[in-house]
Amino acid sequence: MKDIDWSPWLIRMSQGDEEAFRTVYEATRNHAYGLIYYLSPRKQDAGDIMSEVYIELLRSADKYRPEQPFTAWFNGLIVRQVRNWKRKGWRLFRIEEKLRGSKAESLDLESEARLSAVGDRMELLPLLRTLPYKAKEIVVLRYYQDCSLEEIAGILNIPLGTVKSRHHHALKQLRRRYEEKHGGKERNGYVY
């Protein structure tokens, strides 16, 4: 990948010019794929990560400064997207581990185990999008940001009882949506 003056192309790209995007994509795709392939934790994720890289390139094209080499800037963007991808996978793993480890302290073990099964199959995100905003924020803060229920109460400036209630109802809604999607089938020893 040559370090030419990419500024005009990136400016046009940030203004929605599809031709400029195609030009930048064609000039950088082999470089991007190679770097992603070597950095990604699972090689089969390289294509998905590449999509994330180009989405982020579209979002941040206007942040490129011509005084910096484009290749270095673009490599930084790629590395950040690979890290983000790894974090997403790690979060799902942590959800599963947290739910397994919290069995003794959980009052609603059945719901959390079902949530774990959902997370195991990478189906949490589409189901999460169907939740009402207040339920979604509780689940995201609890399982993606690793906040305690007490911390969530402080962040949202609501009583702890309200957080517990929303958490319980969010898990219940996720379970119901999962059951609707999978027709009550048995998964990981649990009947849904």
Rank of each mutant, 00 (worst) to 15 (best):
D48W: 08
F70M: 10
P66M: 08
F21P: 01
S40Q: 03
E19H: 10
I49M: 05
E52W: 07
R29H: 04
P66R: 12
M50Y: 03
D62L: 12
S60P: 03
P66F: 10
P41D: 13
V24N: 02
K43H: 11
Y33W: 12
L57S: 05
A61F: 01
L39T: 05
M50R: 04
K43D: 11
R42W: 02
G34S: 09
P66L: 11
E26K: 05
H31Q: 08
P66A: 14
K43M: 11
R22A: 13
I49N: 00
R65W: 07
R65P: 04
K43A: 11
A32F: 00
Q44Y: 02
S51H: 12
E52Q: 08
E67V: 15
E67C: 08
A20F: 01
Y38D: 15
E19C: 05
Y33F: 13
R42I: 12
T28C: 09
L58W: 12
R65V: 15
A20I: 06
P66Q: 15
Y25A: 08
D48L: 09
Q44F: 02
R42G: 04
R42C: 07
E67Y: 10
M50P: 00
D62H: 13
P41K: 10
A46D: 02
A32W: 00
T28D: 01
E26V: 09
S60E: 15
Y25G: 02
P69V: 15
Y37R: 10
K43T: 14
G34Q: 11
I55Y: 05
R22H: 11
E18S: 06
Y64S: 10
Y33K: 07
A46S: 08
E67N: 12
